[in-house]
Amino acid sequence: MRDELAIQIRGDLAELAQVNAKVTDLLQRHGTGAEVVYRAQLALEEVLSNVIRHGYEDNPAEHAITIHVQLLPDGVRLEFVDDGRAFDPLSVAEVDLDLPLEDRRVGGLGVHLLRTMTKGLNYERKAGCNHLRVDL
């Protein structure tokens, strides 16, 4: 059984459902636990929706985004490659979760979830592309 997968999509939010279905199918066929599958779905949703909504100055649908999925002995690795504007999620300021409701920001939780619901993140800008590795 193949234990890795590469998917290329257009920068279109409508593509997210098929990416999610393919990755979920791969993980479930390999017996990955429900919590890691959920975390993988969350990482796919947060990274791809962020790139598509904010990563491009022109039409995102004219750009390709590649997702590599690898099943490792101790977990799952997702790697995202896009040619959008440089964006290092590790450079984003932490969200202050202790603020009262009236002072809490409505946005900014996506990167926070990536940081807290994964084992690790690694970002590089190479050859005009963002490379984001997410370990689960």
Partner: peptide
């Protein structure tokens, strides 16, 4: 079955409006 950060934002925004 699944809830992304944007949906959390909707809940926070609505709770703020109600608290106000």
């Amino acid at each position: 079955t699944f809830l992304a950060s944007l949906a959390m934002g909707m809940l926070v925004s609505t709770a703020k409006t109600l608290q106000h």
